[in-house]
């Protein structure tokens, strides 16, 4: 029962993040919303493992946590430097 409540709370928060992703207004708000959404997906999968009494789904949650991080970094890096890894010549900014 409580797992259902927990899942419901996460889903409602997901909807709030989705609203932020929909109304923007700029790319950074949307990246932020997607990042939050990813974190919440990790939580939803973890909780679902307990709902279904098969916590081995947690492996998946671990992978999600890592992918979410890599995705956010890649997207912000790309938006910042418009460039995948090849900085401008000797660009001191390439250290994020």
């Amino acid at each position: 029962m409580m797992y259902a409540a927990a899942a419901a709370g996460v889903v409602v928060t997901m909807l709030l993040a989705l609203v932020r992703a929909l109304i923007g207004p700029n790319i950074y708000n949307r990246i932020l919303a997607v990042n939050v959404f990813g974190t919440l997906s990790v939580m939803l999968i973890a909780i679902y493992g307990f709902v279904d009494d098969r916590p081995e789904f947690l492996d998946l949650a671990i992978v999600y946590a890592l992918i979410n991080f890599i995705g956010t970094i890649a997207v912000t890096k790309y938006v910042t430097f418009k460039d995948m890894g090849h900085g401008d010549d000797g660009d001191p900014a390439g250290d994020i």
């Binding site: 929909l22 923007g24 997906s41 998946l60």
Partner: peptide
């Protein structure tokens, strides 16, 4: 706005993956 579309499709994929779980 296509940036928004890309971000939203990321959300769509995350949700799809949750559904597969």
């Amino acid at each position: 706005n296509l940036f928004a579309v890309v971000m939203l499709s990321g959300i769509y994929s995350l949700m799809g993956a949750t559904l597969y779980v």
